[in-house]
């Protein structure tokens, strides 16, 4: 569960990232955030695991305040939140399984992780995670030898190895082709359903949002201007979010 209480974010240069946000994302939801470029989607997502600090208000994840946590408390909250980036952010020179294992560091002592000694259970867990996204056979290949879609699946596996209860994905398919896009979205949806992991995804394809989301939140200039089911997210609603009718390149097509 993710709760936003009167959350606002103003960047040091005066840009408003988020404006007075109040909402609750319940366990197991698959929320897609839509909005124009600069609407505050990344700010919204990154404030949940505090990669970005908010200016006022409070955010709680599973009842624990992210806003007031510090040090190891904050690290333990982050350990429960997997994050998937547009640019994958893998350690390119390391093997796939090493990358997935790096999701486990929050569970072990500094000394143990410095030596790179992960327990057998962690390795098994990581291979399992890779199995779930169908790239188990790539476990011992160097990460930079995989295609973009495969790399993104490795980063999903990393989040699974974390045993996260929440997954955040910031434009996870923006650098993938339409076919791989669907595979990655299918993976995220399957994991959301099978493991009941609360999932929040930033997307800029309207049709993808309608297809995969259980709930769509529309942001405009840092404000929530739409919050409803995919069925309620009509073309008119999108025109409202964007301040204009949708453009052709905001549709992935081929659904």
């Amino acid at each position: 569960m993710i709760e936003f209480d009167n959350v606002s974010k103003v960047y040091p240069n005066g840009t408003v990232g988020l404006r007075n946000i109040n909402l609750t994302i319940k366990e197991g939801e698959l929320v897609v955030i839509v909005g124009l470029s600069g609407a505050g989607k990344s700010t919204f997502l990154r404030s949940i695991n505090r990669l970005t600090d908010i200016s006022s208000g409070e955010i709680r994840v599973n009842g624990k305040s992210v806003t007031h946590a510090a040090g190891s408390q904050l690290r333990h909250i982050r350990r429960d939140i997997g994050m998937i980036f547009q640019s994958f952010n893998l350690i390119k020179r390391s093997t796939v399984v090493r990358n997935v294992l790096s999701g486990r560091v929050g569970y072990h002592s500094t000394l143990r992780t410095m030596l790179g000694w992960f327990p057998k259970e962690d390795v098994a867990l990581s291979l399992d995670a890779l199995q779930r996204v169908n790239i188990r056979e790539k476990a011992y290949v160097r990460a930079d030898q995989l295609s973009g879609g495969q790399q993104q699946r490795v980063s999903i596996a990393r989040a699974l190895a974390q045993e996260a209860s929440v997954i955040l994905a910031d434009e996870p398919v923006a650098s993938l082709d339409p076919l791989t896009t669907r595979q990655v979205m299918d993976d995220l949806q399957r994991i959301n359903r099978e493991m009941n992991i609360t999932t929040v995804i930033n997307l800029h394809f309207i049709d993808l949002a309608r297809e995969y989301a259980t709930r769509i939140i529309g942001l405009r200039a840092g404000e929530v201007v739409f919050d409803g089911t995919p069925a309620e997210a009509t073309d008119e609603a999108f025109a409202e979010i964007y301040g204009r009718p949708a453009l052709q390149d905001e549709l992935l097509g081929g659904a």
């Binding site: 695991n49 990669l51 190891s72 690290r75 333990h76 909250i77 982050r78 350990r79 429960d80 939140i81 997997g82 994050m83 980036f85 640019s87 994958f88 952010n89 893998l90 350690i91 790096s102 999701g103 560091v105 929050g106 500094t110 992780t113 410095m114 790179g116 980063s155 990393r158 974390q162």
Partner: peptide, 20 residues
């Protein structure tokens, strides 16, 4: 990117250096 990913995973400073 990898530093940010390691931060998001809940790694401490030393772990970020070791893995990122």
């Amino acid at each position: 990117g990898p530093l940010e990913a390691m931060t998001a995973v809940g790694a401490n400073r030393m772990q970020i250096i070791r893995f990122g």
